[in-house]
Computed example of a mutant assay.
Amino acid sequence: MTLVPLDGSPAGTPHGSAGADGGPAAGTAGAPSGPAATTTSPPVASPGHSGTGNRRSDAPEPHAPEPDPSPSAPSSPAPTSPAAPADLAWSAPVREATDKRWCEKVTVGFRNTGGTAVRSGTITLGTHIIGALGVDWATITSTRPLPVPVAPGSRGSGTWTVCVDDWRVPLGMHVETRIVTVDWS
């Protein structure tokens, strides 16, 4: 390969210099000078690139573009946070007498303050057997299904007829449903 300066003079000859005899400088004897003396190297192809042609020796080597250092925004939408679980609150029982002293109607209000619907659950009612003098003789529990679904942010209620065995409530006694516990999912 022959290096050719940009001014066209042969390699090894300083710009505008000649040998002692006025001819070409030593080391270039017999080499033509002038514009016809310029030699070109054969076409060079870069690895990984196609094409022909000469590259200037002072031209930078081709390289892959550098990645942009600035962070880019994600192309997908921001993830959404999962909805909050159901959170059910309930009221104290509202009682209503029936024609049988061992039964009563019980209404309980519900409110879902969570982010998802209540889809299933049970309510457990604790019914006290109260004697004629106000003595609490026993507590009997009964479990019923919840009135579902209860949507997020909504209210609802359920009414159940709650009875105990008639022999547990002799004449002069009555029942009072006072305890409410709820289990939901």
Rank of each mutant, 00 (worst) to 15 (best):
A83V: 01
G34N: 10
A31I: 10
A18K: 12
D21Q: 09
S46P: 03
A37T: 05
P71G: 07
A83P: 09
A84P: 04
G22Q: 08
T28H: 12
G51W: 02
P42A: 10
K100A: 15
A29K: 07
A78Y: 00
P32S: 12
A29I: 03
P10V: 13
G34W: 12
P74G: 05
P43F: 05
P79C: 04
A18R: 13
R95F: 08
T52C: 03
T28G: 11
G48Q: 00
E61D: 06
A78F: 00
G16R: 15
H63Y: 02
A37C: 07
G34C: 09
S72N: 05
P71S: 08
G22P: 06
E104Y: 08
E96P: 06
S33R: 12
T40F: 11
S81Y: 00
S72D: 03
A73Y: 08
R95L: 15
A78P: 05
P32H: 09
A97P: 14
T40M: 06
S76W: 02
P71K: 07
G19C: 10
G48I: 00
P69Q: 01
A73E: 08
G12H: 10
S72G: 05
D99N: 14
E96Y: 10
T98W: 13
A36C: 08
S70T: 05
T52G: 06
S76V: 07
T80S: 12
G30D: 06
S9E: 12
T39C: 10
A37D: 05
S57N: 01
S70E: 05
P93C: 10
A64F: 00
G30N: 09
T98C: 14
S91W: 00
P60E: 04
P62Y: 01
T52I: 06
A97T: 15
D7E: 15
A59L: 02
G16C: 14
P32G: 12
D7C: 14
G30F: 08
A11I: 06
K100N: 15
S41F: 09
K100L: 15
G53T: 08
E96L: 12
T13R: 14
S33K: 09
T28D: 13
V44L: 06
R95I: 13
P65K: 02
G51C: 03
P14I: 10
A83I: 01
H15N: 11
P74F: 02
S57M: 02
P43D: 11
S57A: 07
H15I: 13
G12D: 11
W102Q: 15
A11K: 05
G23C: 09
S91Q: 07
V44M: 03
P42T: 10
D99A: 15
S81L: 01
K100T: 15
T13E: 14
S81W: 00
